[in-house]
């Protein structure tokens, strides 16, 4: 292992940091140094250690999802190539996150309420909350008011696929519906049944 031979009194993590700086320029996402430590990919039998591992993975997954605007993570992503390869694998140190470990990380994330199983009643796929539904509600209302969509009826499609890219582009419908429900509770939006499905009308909050 090249890693250990290069390591001297300066410690291994400075080397890893240097590697990551290079990485950052190529891929545009700065991976944490821990991502280059092989034990990070192993499910640690010690519960205290594993808690830290899950915490760090949660952080890594959410920040990567935010960076790439990804909403879903599936256990299968650990096996098949795709959007998540960059974090779930590290070819330089020949390590990958085993599906079983990913599954337990997902469970940890759902427990911490930074993700939810979507669809419900299964544990293979989660919807990631790199913004909480409450935060999405704010973003949505902000966007509606800045683009002058108050008091008009909009279809969900107009929100998820607007002509001009917005923070809400490609937002999954379950998440959008959650955000609208939160707005509806404070009387800032209303779900309306229209001819081809559902629509929403935004209101300016009463001052």
């Amino acid at each position: 292992m090249a890693l250990s031979t290069h390591t001297t009194s300066t410690g291994w993590d400075s080397v890893l940091k240097a590697c990551n700086k290079v990485n950052e320029h190529i891929l545009g996402f700065l991976l944490p140094s821990i991502h280059s430590a092989p034990p990070f990919f192993t499910q640690q039998p010690n519960p205290a250690t594993e808690a830290i591992v899950i915490e760090q993975w949660t952080k890594l997954i959410l920040s990567y999802a935010r960076h790439r605007n990804l909403f879903y993570l599936r256990v299968e992503d650990a096996e098949t190539g795709g959007d998540w390869d960059e974090v779930l694998r590290n070819d330089r140190i020949n390590r990958r996150l085993p599906p079983a470990h990913l599954s337990s990380i997902l469970a940890g994330m759902v427990a911490k309420n930074v993700a939810s199983y979507e669809p419900a009643k299964q544990t293979r796929s989660v919807l990631l909350y790199w913004r909480l539904p409450e935060e999405w509600a704010e973003v949505l209302h902000q966007w509606a008011s800045t683009t002058g969509q108050m008091n008009t009826i909009m279809t969900f499609y107009e929100i998820t696929d607007p002509p001009v890219n917005s923070p809400l582009t490609n937002i999954p419908l379950p998440l959008l519906r959650k955000a609208i429900t939160i707005l509806a509770k404070s009387n800032r939006a209303q779900i309306i049944a229209i001819a081809d499905g559902e629509g929403v009308r935004f209101f300016t909050p009463a001052k």
Partner: peptide
């Protein structure tokens, strides 16, 4: 299995920060 010193204790996040977005 290969054994490592416990890297996780005291580890501080040094990856992409939220402000970078």
């Amino acid at each position: 299995v290969r054994w490592w010193p416990n890297l996780f204790v005291g580890y501080v996040w040094d990856g992409q920060s939220e402000e970078d977005d």
